[in-house]
Nucleic acid binder design. Sequence first.
DNA 1: AGACTGTATGTTATAACATAACGAAAGACG
DNA 2: CGTCTTTCGTTATGTTATAACATACAGTCT
Lengths: 160, 160
Amino acid sequence: MPSAPLGFSQHDHAHCVKSAIISAEDICTKNNAQFTPVRRRVFEILLESHTAMGAYDVLSRLDAEGLGSKPPVAYRALSFLVDQGLVHRIERLNAFVACATPGAHHDPAFMICRGCGTVAEAQTGSGPLSQSALATGFEIEQTVIEAEGLCPECQSGPTS
Amino acid sequence: MPSAPLGFSQHDHAHCVKSAIISAEDICTKNNAQFTPVRRRVFEILLESHTAMGAYDVLSRLDAEGLGSKPPVAYRALSFLVDQGLVHRIERLNAFVACATPGAHHDPAFMICRGCGTVAEAQTGSGPLSQSALATGFEIEQTVIEAEGLCPECQSGPTS
DNA sequence: AGACTGTATGTTATAACATAACGAAAGACG
DNA sequence: CGTCTTTCGTTATGTTATAACATACAGTCT
């Protein structure tokens, strides 16, 4: 029951969920942040779906489970998770995805399949903008790097 | 009467607006696309403001000029301009900015100053994701590359 | 001219995403 | 126990975006 590279390949889902939760607990403890039930459940929902989900999609799951029904409940939990580096926001989709490598500081990059909606996390080599930034004196604080296209599966299949 | 900040440097604003309009006309002609009054005006508004504007900001200008008052009017014109490569959408801001180098095919990158809101367009060297894409077989169609931070001006000034 | 076609607009309504603001509950700590 | 801080519940509203349908207008064919 092995294999784990996240992204567009197979992996042991149950295992990755479990270990992500453990990482999350560690990280929150280290940061003196509380991993409350709502926050935990939101993180689990994202991990389980393993795709990017809109805040309202997350919210409707929470609602079904009696954990909250109003937008701020979902947005607050998502903000918390983003702040802790456990979840990333995908600007292109106005959606959120569980981090593939929690704990590591990173400026993540994403590949978004427009066929199946899968979002794979990658690392940016060195900032592609660092050169321009240097040249102009711009001081980069955060980057958004997202590519949209077709994953290997979808290149042959469903969406042309 | 020159000078207004483009990117993060000075330039002759009146001139850059005029020449951008001419480029736009050429491009539309070449593409058998109509550069209608609304589309032209939206493009001018973006050029004149020389910053990223939300669709509803553009719309209120159109409305004031009697060119349209309903959201689809603005969104349609903006989509058209984006399709023609004359305008770029800034995902991070849910906003639109006139292209700095119309005519050139490009996967542009942006530096967004959180102090003054200026958006500077840069070129990405080679796709920062191309390596990851190759490795996984992902086929990139479009990229979003945006950095947020502080421009030289704002590093010493207003926003800490 | 009259009918037909395609592109662009106008308009209504609503979907989808996001946050401000306020008060109550719960735990931490002197 | 009182107070402080953090989290949560809720109301209300703000912001961004599009679906769907109707109209206008220019060109073309007969």
